[in-house]
Design a binder for these strands. Structure first.
Length: 220
DNA sequence: CACCAGGCAAGTA
DNA sequence: TACTTGCATGGT
């Protein structure tokens, strides 16, 4: 609509961002060698710690399965076995298969073609895949395709409601709009900010988002 | 031992 | 629309 960086909410968010960056340093997300690996990781990490995802990705790498064609060719049972350390392995094996089918059917199996699609169309296509919800879709749009959509997770929800920037019962879209309306559309900023929020959540904000040692404590 | 992790779909009321 | 439940491993 209008001046984004100058809004009160924008100022508060940028202050939070600055403190988190000073405290934790750049997180350099997403940790993946290729866009396809990033997408696979985004499914594997659903409600799952990254350390477990790393074990599963390592298995896939070793078996040469971090590839659209190879993942499409492998059996669902064998895939499930390979990703076992990431948990929910039967569900996630199917979800990865569904994602691969989208890539094959809509983009001819060509990941680069997928990544240059319009962001809204790409997001919509991803949401059409069973097993890909808003957070996974937005992660792919931001970190693999490089479009400025803000990724919202449980930590984001808790921190923003704790700072009274959204209601406690706010929806995904409402929380995302809080960032979109208040911040400039800056891909490196969106990438780093989300990564820092997750780091803060993992480090300090498990039960309550604003404990004493948290770098964004006192801003509310 | 309990609890949590970088969610999502399907079922119920 | 708004809850609830199943999915599962590995670390604290």
């Amino acid at each position: 609509m209008n001046e984004k960086s100058g809004s009160p909410t924008g100022e508060r968010l940028m202050t939070m961002y600055g403190r988190l960056l000073d405290h934790f340093g750049p997180q350099e997300w997403w940790p993946a060698e290729t866009p396809f690996e990033m997408m696979v990781g985004s499914v594997l990490t659903q409600n799952t710690s990254w350390s477990n995802v790393e074990k599963a990705l390592s298995n896939l790498e070793r078996e040469g399965l971090l590839d659209v064609g190879r993942l499409r060719a492998v059996g669902t049972e064998a895939l499930a076995l390979a990703i076992r350390p990431a948990g929910y392995y039967n569900v996630k094996a199917k979800r990865l298969k569904n994602l691969v089918e989208l890539i094959v059917e809509r983009y001819g199996g060509d990941v680069p073609s997928m990544l240059v699609e319009d962001p809204e169309a790409l997001r919509s296509a991803l949401l059409g895949v069973s097993g890909i919800g808003p957070e996974t879709a937005d992660s792919i749009v931001l970190y693999a395709a490089g479009h400025p959509v803000f990724v919202v997770d449980a930590y984001t929800h808790r921190i923003l409601s704790r700072h009274d920037l959204v209601d406690e019962g706010a929806s995904y879209d409402e929380i995302q709009a809080t960032f979109s309306d208040a911040l400039p559309e800056d891909v490196p900023l969106f990438r780093e900010f989300h990564a820092l929020i997750v780091m803060a959540g993992k480090t300090y904000c498990r039960k309550r988002p604003l404990c004493e040692r948290c770098p964004i404590q006192g801003l509310e």
